[in-house]
Amino acid sequence: MIRRKARDVERFVGMELFLREIHRRGVQVAENSGQIVIFCNRAPVRWLSGPVPLS
């Protein structure tokens, strides 16, 4: 896993080229609050959240 600021990715390589490379490598990437997280393998990502409130 690698984390980078989205503005740095845009400044150094450009978002279009970055996303093409992500696609070429077959890895996944997530963006949240200006941060890009690259998952450096092809395994599925499972999103977790806090406990579900009881009704």
Score class of each variant (00 low, 15 high):
M1Q: 14
I2N: 06
R3F: 08
R4F: 08
R4L: 14
K5D: 08
K5I: 06
K5S: 10
K5C: 07
A6Y: 08
A6P: 03
R7S: 11
R7Y: 06
D8K: 15
D8E: 15
V9W: 05
V9Q: 06
V9I: 14
V9S: 04
E10G: 14
E10M: 14
R11M: 09
R11T: 10
R11G: 09
R11F: 11
R11E: 12
F12R: 15
F12H: 13
F12K: 15
F12V: 13
F12P: 03
F12T: 14
V13A: 08
V13H: 05
V13L: 12
G14D: 13
G14V: 08
G14F: 10
G14K: 10
M15K: 12
M15Q: 11
E16K: 15
E16N: 09
E16F: 05
L17A: 15
L17Y: 07
F18P: 05
F18Q: 01
F18M: 03
L19D: 07
R20V: 01
R20N: 06
R20H: 05
E21G: 07
E21I: 05
E21W: 06
E21A: 10
I22S: 04
I22Q: 03
H23Y: 14
H23A: 15
R24L: 12
R24Y: 09
R25P: 00
R25M: 07
R25Y: 02
R25W: 04
G26Q: 12
G26S: 12
G26E: 12
V27R: 11
V27A: 10
Q28D: 09
Q28R: 14
V29K: 09
V29I: 13
V29D: 07
V29N: 07
A30L: 14
A30S: 14
A30F: 12
E31H: 05
N32Q: 14
G34N: 05
G34W: 03
G34Y: 01
G34L: 03
Q35N: 11
Q35V: 15
Q35I: 15
Q35F: 07
V37Y: 11
I38D: 00
I38Y: 00
I38F: 00
I38Q: 04
I38L: 08
F39C: 02
F39A: 05
F39W: 03
C40V: 08
N41K: 00
N41S: 06
R42I: 05
R42Q: 15
A43E: 09
A43W: 02
A43I: 03
A43T: 04
P44L: 08
P44R: 11
P44W: 05
P44C: 07
P44F: 04
P44Q: 10
V45S: 03
V45R: 04
V45M: 06
V45C: 02
V45D: 01
R46A: 02
R46K: 08
R46L: 06
W47E: 01
W47S: 01
W47A: 01
L48I: 02
L48H: 08
L48P: 00
S49A: 02
S49D: 02
G50A: 00
G50C: 00
G50W: 00
G50R: 01
P51M: 12
P51K: 12
P51E: 11
P51H: 11
V52S: 10
V52R: 09
V52P: 00
V52G: 06
P53M: 03
P53G: 07
P53D: 04
P53S: 03
L54D: 12
L54S: 11
L54I: 07
L54E: 13
L54Q: 13
S55M: 05
S55D: 09
S55W: 04
S55L: 07
